[in-house]
């Protein structure tokens, strides 16, 4: 889910930026460093929303760079267990399918796809329902429930399930 989060981060700035636009440089530096990154605690940091405070800089001896402690509010995106997400299918294979919800990669194994779906390879790889009405194939939108989350230094992966009420294919994108 998306949520706002106050984050405190230290940023180091080169002396050439010390001047009238210092604050803007610090803010730009923070945006460059965190937007689009992934942290173990907050998940993906999507965008920096506002800056709460910027501390006094401390010059580091030797280098001349200064460190600032910045407190900012960021919009983050982190999957939680039991959360329902809408995602786009991008790979289908025998073991299951992979889909993405924004930056997040989600895997749904064949155990967690309802039994009436069967894997087919006829024209393209797809899971097809027994009445041949619904196809899980590349490009379609699915609604899945997260059952497991793993967040690593720069990446975030989920295992999700489609085996529940109100989950399944919601739309087909062409």
């Amino acid at each position: 889910m998306f949520y706002f989060q106050d984050i405190i981060k230290e940023v180091e700035l080169h002396p050439k930026y010390f001047g009238r636009k210092l604050t803007r440089h610090i803010e730009e530096q923070i945006q460059k460093e965190v937007e689009g990154s992934c942290s173990g605690k907050y998940g993906y940091i999507v965008v920096v929303y506002a800056f709460n405070s910027i501390s006094q800089g401390r010059i580091r001896e030797g280098g001349g760079c200064a460190t600032f402690t910045v407190n900012f509010k960021a919009c983050c995106m982190r999957p939680f267990k039991n959360e329902v997400l809408q995602a786009t299918v991008d790979v289908v294979n025998k073991v299951g399918f992979f889909c993405t919800a924004g930056p997040l990669k989600i895997f749904v194994s064949n155990y967690l796809i309802p039994e009436e779906f069967e894997f087919q390879m006829a024209e393209e790889a797809a899971f097809v329902s027994s009445d041949d009405e619904v196809r899980i194939k590349i490009g379609c939108q699915v609604r899945v429930r997260v059952v497991g989350v793993r967040i690593e230094a720069n990446d975030c992966t989920c295992v999700a399930s489609m085996k529940d009420d109100y989950l399944g294919v919601v739309a087909i994108m062409d």
Binding site: G148, V149, V159
Partner: peptide
Amino acid sequence: ESAPICPPHPGLMHGMCIRCGT
């Protein structure tokens, strides 16, 4: 989710069980 047969886990994806997410 996993009560039927997990563990043993049928497979792992990034260290997560592909059936129960553990």
